[in-house]
Design a protein around this nucleic acid. Structure first.
Length: 218
DNA sequence: CCCTCGATTCTCT
DNA sequence: GAGAATCGAGGGT
Protein backbone atom coordinates (compact mmCIF):
# COMPACT_ATOMS: atom_id res chain seq x y z
CA UNK A 1 0.00 0.00 0.00
CA UNK A 2 1.33 3.40 -0.96
CA UNK A 3 1.83 5.92 1.80
CA UNK A 4 -0.74 8.37 0.47
CA UNK A 5 -3.23 5.53 0.28
CA UNK A 6 -2.44 4.66 3.90
CA UNK A 7 -2.92 8.30 4.91
CA UNK A 8 -6.31 8.33 3.26
CA UNK A 9 -7.21 5.16 5.16
CA UNK A 10 -6.14 6.79 8.44
CA UNK A 11 -7.91 10.06 7.67
CA UNK A 12 -11.01 9.04 9.60
CA UNK A 13 -12.40 9.20 13.09
CA UNK A 14 -10.27 7.11 15.49
CA UNK A 15 -13.33 5.15 16.60
CA UNK A 16 -13.71 4.01 12.98
CA UNK A 17 -10.00 3.44 12.43
CA UNK A 18 -9.38 1.46 15.63
CA UNK A 19 -11.38 -1.70 14.77
CA UNK A 20 -9.98 -1.61 11.23
CA UNK A 21 -6.44 -1.66 12.66
CA UNK A 22 -7.02 -5.10 14.15
CA UNK A 23 -5.01 -7.54 12.07
CA UNK A 24 -2.79 -4.81 10.65
CA UNK A 25 0.97 -5.42 10.79
CA UNK A 26 3.34 -2.76 12.10
CA UNK A 27 7.02 -3.28 11.30
CA UNK A 28 10.03 -1.53 12.81
CA UNK A 29 13.30 -2.08 10.99
CA UNK A 30 16.60 -1.14 12.62
CA UNK A 31 20.23 -2.15 12.25
CA UNK A 32 19.42 -5.03 14.58
CA UNK A 33 16.75 -6.36 12.25
CA UNK A 34 13.01 -6.15 11.72
CA UNK A 35 10.26 -6.88 14.21
CA UNK A 36 6.65 -7.03 13.07
CA UNK A 37 3.55 -7.16 15.20
CA UNK A 38 0.05 -8.12 14.14
CA UNK A 39 -2.27 -5.87 16.12
CA UNK A 40 -4.88 -7.59 18.27
CA UNK A 41 -5.96 -4.79 20.63
CA UNK A 42 -6.18 -1.02 20.21
CA UNK A 43 -7.93 1.94 21.83
CA UNK A 44 -9.31 5.08 20.18
CA UNK A 45 -8.66 8.53 21.66
CA UNK A 46 -10.63 11.27 20.05
CA UNK A 47 -9.83 14.92 19.63
CA UNK A 48 -9.92 17.57 22.28
CA UNK A 49 -12.31 19.62 24.33
CA UNK A 50 -13.22 21.98 21.51
CA UNK A 51 -14.04 19.27 19.02
CA UNK A 52 -17.57 18.18 18.28
CA UNK A 53 -17.15 14.99 20.29
CA UNK A 54 -14.98 15.61 23.33
CA UNK A 55 -13.02 12.73 24.83
CA UNK A 56 -12.05 13.29 28.48
CA UNK A 57 -9.69 10.32 28.27
CA UNK A 58 -7.48 11.84 25.60
CA UNK A 59 -4.07 13.35 26.32
CA UNK A 60 -5.19 16.28 24.17
CA UNK A 61 -8.44 16.90 26.04
CA UNK A 62 -7.08 20.02 27.70
CA UNK A 63 -5.52 21.40 24.54
CA UNK A 64 -2.14 21.58 22.92
CA UNK A 65 0.96 20.91 25.05
CA UNK A 66 4.57 19.99 24.40
CA UNK A 67 3.84 16.33 25.06
CA UNK A 68 0.81 15.93 22.80
CA UNK A 69 2.15 18.13 19.97
CA UNK A 70 2.45 15.25 17.51
CA UNK A 71 -1.22 14.35 17.92
CA UNK A 72 -2.17 17.69 16.40
CA UNK A 73 -0.24 16.99 13.24
CA UNK A 74 -1.16 14.94 10.18
CA UNK A 75 -2.08 11.24 10.39
CA UNK A 76 0.39 8.47 9.68
CA UNK A 77 2.83 9.36 12.45
CA UNK A 78 3.62 7.75 15.79
CA UNK A 79 2.70 9.57 18.99
CA UNK A 80 4.97 8.08 21.67
CA UNK A 81 4.58 9.07 25.29
CA UNK A 82 6.50 8.19 28.44
CA UNK A 83 4.58 7.16 31.53
CA UNK A 84 4.94 5.80 35.05
CA UNK A 85 8.56 6.92 35.07
CA UNK A 86 9.73 4.01 32.93
CA UNK A 87 7.43 2.96 30.11
CA UNK A 88 6.78 4.07 26.54
CA UNK A 89 3.48 3.60 24.71
CA UNK A 90 2.75 4.24 21.05
CA UNK A 91 -0.25 5.60 19.18
CA UNK A 92 -0.93 5.97 15.49
CA UNK A 93 -2.14 9.50 14.79
CA UNK A 94 -5.29 9.46 12.69
CA UNK A 95 -7.95 11.87 11.49
CA UNK A 96 -7.18 15.21 9.87
CA UNK A 97 -4.42 17.49 11.18
CA UNK A 98 -5.72 19.71 13.96
CA UNK A 99 -8.14 17.08 15.29
CA UNK A 100 -5.62 15.49 17.63
CA UNK A 101 -6.90 11.93 17.49
CA UNK A 102 -5.10 8.64 17.64
CA UNK A 103 -5.17 4.94 18.34
CA UNK A 104 -3.15 3.45 21.20
CA UNK A 105 -1.49 0.18 20.24
CA UNK A 106 -2.33 -2.02 23.20
CA UNK A 107 -1.32 -5.51 22.14
CA UNK A 108 -0.33 -7.76 19.29
CA UNK A 109 1.26 -10.97 18.15
CA UNK A 110 4.90 -10.88 17.04
CA UNK A 111 4.95 -12.34 13.53
CA UNK A 112 8.52 -11.44 12.53
CA UNK A 113 11.75 -11.04 14.48
CA UNK A 114 10.74 -13.09 17.52
CA UNK A 115 14.34 -13.55 18.65
CA UNK A 116 15.01 -9.82 18.61
CA UNK A 117 11.71 -9.10 20.35
CA UNK A 118 12.53 -11.69 23.02
CA UNK A 119 15.95 -10.11 23.56
CA UNK A 120 14.31 -6.71 24.10
CA UNK A 121 11.67 -8.25 26.35
CA UNK A 122 13.89 -10.16 28.75
CA UNK A 123 11.12 -10.36 31.34
CA UNK A 124 8.74 -12.18 29.00
CA UNK A 125 8.49 -15.90 29.71
CA UNK A 126 6.08 -16.76 26.91
CA UNK A 127 5.67 -15.56 23.35
CA UNK A 128 2.16 -14.43 24.22
CA UNK A 129 3.67 -11.94 26.70
CA UNK A 130 5.97 -10.27 24.18
CA UNK A 131 3.47 -7.60 23.17
CA UNK A 132 0.64 -8.07 25.67
CA UNK A 133 0.09 -4.52 26.91
CA UNK A 134 1.03 -1.17 25.35
CA UNK A 135 4.42 -0.71 27.05
CA UNK A 136 5.38 -4.30 26.27
CA UNK A 137 4.40 -3.86 22.63
CA UNK A 138 6.50 -0.70 22.41
CA UNK A 139 9.46 -2.43 24.04
CA UNK A 140 9.23 -5.46 21.73
CA UNK A 141 9.32 -3.11 18.74
CA UNK A 142 12.16 -1.07 20.20
CA UNK A 143 10.07 2.11 20.40
CA UNK A 144 11.34 4.93 22.63
CA UNK A 145 10.97 8.69 22.88
CA UNK A 146 13.19 9.25 19.85
CA UNK A 147 10.43 7.75 17.71
CA UNK A 148 7.80 10.28 18.74
CA UNK A 149 6.60 11.85 15.49
CA UNK A 150 8.10 9.17 13.24
CA UNK A 151 6.22 8.75 9.96
CA UNK A 152 5.00 5.34 8.87
CA UNK A 153 6.95 5.52 5.62
CA UNK A 154 10.48 4.77 6.74
CA UNK A 155 11.84 2.55 9.49
CA UNK A 156 8.22 2.09 10.54
CA UNK A 157 5.69 0.60 8.13
CA UNK A 158 2.02 -0.18 8.62
CA UNK A 159 0.24 -2.77 6.51
CA UNK A 160 -3.54 -2.65 7.01
CA UNK A 161 -5.36 -5.99 6.98
CA UNK A 162 -6.46 -7.38 3.63
CA UNK A 163 -10.00 -7.37 4.90
CA UNK A 164 -11.76 -6.06 7.98
CA UNK A 165 -11.78 -8.50 10.91
CA UNK A 166 -15.04 -10.51 10.82
CA UNK A 167 -15.42 -10.40 14.59
CA UNK A 168 -14.38 -7.49 16.82
CA UNK A 169 -15.16 -7.02 20.51
CA UNK A 170 -15.16 -3.70 22.32
CA UNK A 171 -15.46 -2.29 25.81
CA UNK A 172 -14.15 0.38 28.20
CA UNK A 173 -10.56 1.53 27.84
CA UNK A 174 -7.96 0.18 30.23
CA UNK A 175 -6.47 2.26 33.02
CA UNK A 176 -8.25 5.49 32.08
CA UNK A 177 -9.33 7.47 35.14
CA UNK A 178 -12.41 9.67 35.29
CA UNK A 179 -15.25 9.89 32.78
CA UNK A 180 -13.04 8.74 29.92
CA UNK A 181 -12.75 5.31 31.50
CA UNK A 182 -16.51 4.86 31.86
CA UNK A 183 -18.78 2.66 29.80
CA UNK A 184 -19.73 5.81 27.89
CA UNK A 185 -16.45 5.47 26.00
CA UNK A 186 -16.27 1.79 24.92
CA UNK A 187 -13.37 2.55 22.61
CA UNK A 188 -11.11 -0.39 23.35
CA UNK A 189 -11.29 -2.87 20.47
CA UNK A 190 -9.83 -6.35 20.35
CA UNK A 191 -9.93 -9.63 18.46
CA UNK A 192 -11.65 -12.54 20.23
CA UNK A 193 -9.62 -15.54 21.33
CA UNK A 194 -6.20 -13.91 21.05
CA UNK A 195 -3.72 -14.84 23.82
CA UNK A 196 -1.92 -11.53 23.31
CA UNK A 197 -4.90 -9.41 24.33
CA UNK A 198 -4.14 -7.79 27.67
CA UNK A 199 -6.22 -8.34 30.78
CA UNK A 200 -8.65 -5.55 31.51
CA UNK A 201 -7.58 -3.25 34.32
CA UNK A 202 -9.73 -0.44 35.53
CA UNK A 203 -8.00 2.79 36.48
CA UNK A 204 -6.75 2.54 40.03
CA UNK A 205 -6.24 5.87 41.77
CA UNK A 206 -2.80 6.23 43.26
CA UNK A 207 -2.15 8.91 45.79
CA UNK A 208 0.94 10.15 47.49
CA UNK A 209 -0.42 8.66 50.70
CA UNK A 210 -0.36 5.16 49.29
CA UNK A 211 3.27 5.38 48.30
CA UNK A 212 4.53 7.63 51.07
CA UNK A 213 5.33 4.66 53.30
CA UNK A 214 8.93 4.45 52.21
CA UNK A 215 9.31 7.86 50.68
CA UNK A 216 11.99 10.00 52.24
CA UNK A 217 10.10 13.01 53.52
CA UNK A 218 12.10 16.05 54.47
C1' DC B 1 -5.51 -18.15 37.69
C1' DC B 2 -6.12 -13.98 41.06
C1' DC B 3 -4.75 -9.78 43.75
C1' DT B 4 -1.80 -6.08 45.74
C1' DC B 5 1.98 -3.12 45.68
C1' DG B 6 6.45 -0.75 44.53
C1' DA B 7 9.29 1.28 40.86
C1' DT B 8 10.69 5.86 38.81
C1' DT B 9 10.46 10.40 36.22
C1' DC B 10 7.90 13.19 33.34
C1' DT B 11 4.03 16.41 32.80
C1' DC B 12 0.87 19.80 33.75
C1' DT B 13 -1.43 22.73 37.31
C1' DG C 1 3.02 18.70 44.11
C1' DA C 2 0.25 14.95 42.44
C1' DG C 3 -0.84 11.65 39.40
C1' DA C 4 0.14 8.99 35.28
C1' DA C 5 -3.47 5.47 28.45
C1' DT C 6 1.95 0.29 33.11
C1' DC C 7 4.72 -3.67 34.38
C1' DG C 8 6.62 -7.29 37.06
C1' DA C 9 7.35 -9.55 41.41
C1' DG C 10 5.45 -11.86 45.10
C1' DG C 11 2.04 -14.35 47.52
C1' DG C 12 -2.62 -16.48 47.79
C1' DT C 13 -6.46 -19.42 45.82
Amino acid sequence: MEYDELLHWLLRDPVAVAPDLLGAVLTHTTAEGAVSVRLTEVEAYRGHRDSEHADPGSHSYNGRTARNEVMWGPPGHLYVYFTYGMHYCANIVCGPAGRSSGCLLRAGEIVEGIDLAMARRAAARKESELARGPARLAQALGITREHNGAALDGEFRLLPPARRAPSVLNGPRVGVAGAGGSADYPWRFWLPGEPSVSAYRAAKPRTRARTAGNAVVR
